[in-house]
Amino acid sequence: MQEQTRYAIQVTDLTVAYREKPVLWDVDMEVPEANLMAIVGPNGAGKTTLLKSILGLMQPAAGQVLIYGKPYQQQRRLVGYVPQRGSVDWDFPTTVLDVVMMGRYGSLGWLKRPGKSERMKAEEALHKVGMGEYANRQISQLSGGQQQRVFLARALVQDAQVYFMDEPFQGVDAVTERAIVTLLQELRSAGKTVVVVHHDLQTVPEYFDWVMLLNVRRIACGPVEKVFTEENLRKAYGGRIGFLRSDQNHHLENMPVEGVAAVETSPTGGTLPAGNR
């Protein structure tokens, strides 16, 4: 890879309004290639809206989205998507394998039927997420964590360069969370860029290299060690972070401070994201 940073995702001036009320206001976001990025922010901050408008599922009032330097519409094949698990009806009459194969539909294009190679790719992806034995299960028999793994497998078969995931850790157990993190790290090693809507502030420094703090506006966006500070969190969460900190969850207490300490002891100006080291 060349010296200068290649941006996998560049979003400029993205503004989304819902009935005249701005949901996202003038949001910029640049993500260098081969990074794991978290989007964090309080409820209603517009995290899901940001993902959906990047993916063209919602009409932004203004703004531009570039994937590897070209408009998203031209680069669709490079983009994979993992929606929120709760967004579909899991009682739909279909099998695990069938759902995973849906990830190939985009490459197949209109009218072409999935065949043997799609089936093999889907089976491979299922093995990768540890669901190989579930290929022929009816999807209503899956647990929450298993549903999430199926969605991940479906994104894997998309064979994308850039992935957007909406709360992949929502309601999964510790084992599945570990498995997902490992998978994300593998994707990063393979040069992929992954953007994750995330809720658990505690795990941000551990899991991610890059972070965006969002609350309708962009509060901060950059390498975790630089921007994941107490000050920025306070800006994003307003008074609510104080409430969180007085909570019995001590992890929230030492976590942002740790981030601050890291910046203070190593006052490097242009830290490279972990993935580009």
């Binding site: 669709r76 849906m102 985009g106 209109w110 039927r113």
Partner: peptide, 22 residues
């Protein structure tokens, strides 16, 4: 029958389908 795959996508997960360019 012709649009079987697309209709399945539409019925199960329309947003994912849209993101794939359908």
């Amino acid at each position: 029958g012709l649009f079987w795959k697309e209709f399945k996508l539409l019925s199960f997960d329309p947003e994912f389908g849209e993101s794939q360019g359908f």
